[in-house]
């Protein structure tokens, strides 16, 4: 587990910064809810009459005046997008950075198989995502208590489980790409996360673009859908997980065969 330990050690600061930034923003956002609650009608009316934008953010299905509706839309966007960016960065840099920083030569001339390297790197990504989500969930729970709102456990759990799956999918796809590129390109990780996010907005606006929901993981992590149905939609999750496993499988397959740049 040497590689896993080293990866976690090296990723410590970045994990801390991303987790606390997202957690802090979620907390601040939650502190705004009591004020929002008082103006329920006028705010809801305003947000629910913005045409396409209302649909894009799912505000036609849930209300900003209710605590979970507010949490799902406001905090969901922060955690959804922030978590996706962090997952993209983790995935894209995992394998490619070894070649970019010329450390692959040091690592791979030790008696460790490439499969082991890929396995431990993947384990480190999943561990970091897991830790980030645990801390953010804790911050969220505290923020619910701080504003004296009751936490609807099932909706809350489903929402956070969906975000974790979304982060897992994005990191896994980026991880697969990471095995193929030589120069770690953080832009690919961030770009992919952003593209997925906007694809979901487009799919929410136009029915003709509904097929995009099978491509982007933001479809199954869409708070409006989860909160109105109080369930996750397996028809979007399944293709997403197939993509994730494909990315991981490709990483194992290709990294074992590739020539390491000097």
């Amino acid at each position: 587990m040497t590689i896993l330990n080293q990866e976690l050690k090296r990723g410590k600061l970045s994990l801390l910064i991303w987790t606390l930034s997202i957690g802090f923003m979620v907390f601040i956002c939650m502190m705004m809810f009591p004020e929002m609650k008082g103006k329920t009608d006028s705010v809801s009316d305003m947000f629910s009459s913005m045409g396409s934008f209302t649909a894009a953010f799912g505000m036609d299905k849930i209300s900003l005046g209710e605590i979970m509706g507010f949490y799902g839309i406001e905090c969901g966007n922060i955690l959804g997008l922030g978590g996706a960016f962090f997952a993209g960065l983790l995935g894209i840099s995992a394998l490619a950075n070894e070649e970019k920083n010329h450390t692959a030569e040091f690592l791979l001339t030790h008696p460790v198989s490439r499969t082991r390297v890929v396995f431990e790197k993947l384990a480190s990504i999943i561990t970091q995502l897991f830790l980030m989500n645990i801390v953010i969930i804790l911050i969220s729970v505290i923020s619910f208590a701080a504003i004296g709102e009751e936490l609807p456990l099932k909706e809350f759990a489903l929402l956070h489980f969906a975000y974790f799956l979304l982060q897992f999918q994005i990191s896994a796809v980026c991880f697969g790409i990471s095995a193929f590129i030589r120069r770690g390109n953080l832009g690919i990780g961030l770009g992919l996360a952003a593209v997925f996010y906007f694809l979901n907005l487009i799919a929410n606006i136009s029915e003709q673009a509904d097929f995009l929901k099978y491509i982007t993981p933001f479809s199954y992590a869409d708070s409006a859908g989860i909160l109105s149905e109080v369930s996750l939609d397996p028809s979007y999750i399944l293709p997403g997980m197939v993509c994730a496993l494909l990315g991981i499988g490709l990483a194992f397959y290709h990294y074992d065969r590739k020539d390491i740049a000097g």
């Binding site: 080293q6 090296r10 920083n101 450390t103 030569e105 040091f106 001339t109 030790h110 008696p111």
Partner: peptide, 16 residues
Amino acid sequence: LSRIGYMPSEAMFYSG
């Protein structure tokens, strides 16, 4: 590899 000691021409290590 378990019985080899290798010294590259340009040694690079993990930053930090």
